[in-house]
């Protein structure tokens, strides 16, 4: 635990700084009411009201998120493997190659079926 304690100090420091700046600026900054300024910015046209809970998020981003998760998991496995690579020997290598291959299959699939096209 001792290793992580100093980080807490840094967190506190950073947070204090950030919060302090934000608070100070609201206190000392000028306040001049202007309806147009409080509307959301849409290049000057009448703002479209947003649906409750934020707008709709394009499906595309879910796809990206899902793919990301898969690879993220893969990385979780790769890291310890890499660190202990020398101890794991051939078995570890073969296992990881198999694993990578299996991960690659859906990746290739997604690629081929157009999941990696952005427009």
């Amino acid at each position: 635990m001792d290793l992580y304690a100093p980080m807490i100090g840094l967190i506190i420091l950073g947070a204090v700084f950030a919060v302090f700046s934000v608070v100070v600026s609201t206190v000392i900054g000028p306040k001049r009411y202007n309806r147009a300024r409080l509307d959301s910015y849409e290049c000057g046209i009448e703002p479209t009201p947003q649906p409750v809970g934020g707008g709709r998020i394009p499906i595309k981003y879910y796809l990206t998120a899902m793919t990301f998760i898969i690879f993220d998991i893969e990385i979780i496995f790769l890291y310890p493997w890499a660190v202990r690579f020398d101890h794991l020997g051939v078995f570890g290598f073969v296992a990881m190659v198999t694993f990578l291959f299996l991960i690659t299959v859906p990746f290739v699939y997604e690629w081929r079926r157009g999941g990696l096209e952005w427009d």
Binding site: L102, V105, P106, V108, Y109, W111, R112, R113
Partner: peptide
């Protein structure tokens, strides 16, 4: 299953 996915992708 795995090959099936690939088939899905390439065939």
């Amino acid at each position: 299953g795995v090959v099936g996915v690939l088939v899905e992708a390439f065939v």
